[in-house]
Write a protein that binds this DNA or RNA. Sequence first.
DNA 1: CTGTTAGCGCGTTCAC
DNA 2: GTGAACGCGCTAACAG
Lengths: 339, 339
Amino acid sequence: MKKERATIHDISKALGIDSSTVSRALNDSPRVSQKTKGLIIKKAKELGYQRNSLASNLRTNKTHTIAVVIPRISRYFFSTVIAGIEETAHEAGYNVLICQSLDSIDREKKIMSTLISNRVDGIIISISMETTDYKHLEAYQSLEKPIIFFDRPCFLKNCSNITIDNVHASFMATEHLISQGCTRIAHLSGSQKIELYRQRQKGYMAALKKHNLEANAKHIFESGLSEEDGMASAKKILELKGIDGVVSANDTAAISAMKYFKTQGVKVPEDIAVVGFNNDPISAIIEPSLTTIHQPAFEIGKMASRTLLEQMTDNLKEQQISSTLLDSELIIRSSSQKK
Amino acid sequence: MKKERATIHDISKALGIDSSTVSRALNDSPRVSQKTKGLIIKKAKELGYQRNSLASNLRTNKTHTIAVVIPRISRYFFSTVIAGIEETAHEAGYNVLICQSLDSIDREKKIMSTLISNRVDGIIISISMETTDYKHLEAYQSLEKPIIFFDRPCFLKNCSNITIDNVHASFMATEHLISQGCTRIAHLSGSQKIELYRQRQKGYMAALKKHNLEANAKHIFESGLSEEDGMASAKKILELKGIDGVVSANDTAAISAMKYFKTQGVKVPEDIAVVGFNNDPISAIIEPSLTTIHQPAFEIGKMASRTLLEQMTDNLKEQQISSTLLDSELIIRSSSQKK
DNA sequence: CTGTTAGCGCGTTCAC
DNA sequence: GTGAACGCGCTAACAG
């Protein structure tokens, strides 16, 4: 019952041709005549030969596999990015390995370690919320293999970033609230150790400044942006009194803040308008009135994959390092125009 | 700049211990003393050693990788299943390779071929809509490695299935409409070559029979269940006159049928109530009134992964072949009670 | 408990 | 254009 798999040696013996020639033929080397190539390929099919990539990988130190490291695959944004990555990678003959960090630095470190062991040819990653130093990423880089960051920017040496223009997006979001008549706008911000949240806060500040609104440090609530954080910040916002708009650096906090406002009898968006980032279809069900920044997930995935493929195949790495900013879009589901 | 990676030989030389002992120590074999183990592990860290899985894989013919083959990752159902698979697999030290068939048999065949080349240790698959014969799957089986089917049942020899009880779910859906007062219920059915759709049709028929409703072949619309198919079937349903309920074998067709009904001034669910299968958050946005069968995606993923892991590690394959039916749930978002 | 031997299946030198 | 020989890094099998 146990079928032994055919190897190049089997077809070498069957044909009386050396196995090295068989190998070359199967790799379509130009150094083998069309005649013998034909013969070999025919015999290969006949024997049901399937290349053993394991052996090939060991020899060439390439796996034709790229890894995607993300916080959570079931978030619509990330699964859509992966769809984009997969499409591009698949066309180029690459496999895609999925790894979830669950926003834990420990898991991310473990993942990097197995990716090094497995010698994946490249990595596309949205770093975990807890990631503030990059030794585990640099260890991978020392294999001379490329890393691409997306969604959450990271200016590691020799790495490309594929993100939206977060400063601009946050600016747009804030300006939208101002155009709706908001004058005292709070910001649910994330840790300022994280570049992403620095950028989003920067955009918020810039919009206030442009419109001559007071930038009050008390209006900025830095937190982990979890559901509980959103609740807690919302509570503080109400205690402050007079806040009429909120720009949240993510959707989780935005939605839980909105929930809290409602439980306190505060109307959204009439009394306080809220803008969030990057929200899923599912948050649209929970809070249909949330205005949000939409990221072009599929395009981000394709671009990340394309960039990675380039860096894997060419040797001119140095020149190619880039930061690509894709367009985002403000999606307005309900008006909050102040009288 | 190019750092050479340390191998077991480097740490073997550095310590004057044979490389095979080093290998055993690093694999935590009980046949190495704690003392030397400690020494070796310490030295390994010192040299920044990271196992080369490629070599290990070649030797053991195992990859510690399982593949998930699905139609589309960006569908919420599938990405959630993957989350479940990943959780279980990761705990057990396995990697997860993602492959999208895009419901194309040709792509599925290619995928199977590369999975054979890559010697993944097991496969979890929801077969494509176009898959009606299974040679490409049997080729993989001949490597003596297990395949688990989920979502779309497939009774290939020696393979386990993890699905909901489709007959029962479809029965529930149909009975729900009957309880709402529907008496002429149509069925948007899929190809009867596909087991999944046979089962769903069976449940529909059974419910009609139980409640002494006429089972009319004209009320069954077999199609590819695409958006266009949904439209076309909806049109035919209206031409039939008198239909007051529709059980659709998937959500895509259900939603497009509902859309068509509305364009024709038919009220949903008042005039015609519709029940779909397996719908995403996103379809709930498009059609908030759609009643639907909900599958426990995360649980399905965990169960599939667990079953696969068992079959990969044990040798008693024969005994373990099983069909696991997980519970599904009817989610009712709006009443369609007939007067 | 540890060392020795012998490959896993392929790709890459070299020769010719 | 083709063949012979070697080795990628690791581990199974067998000694001792």
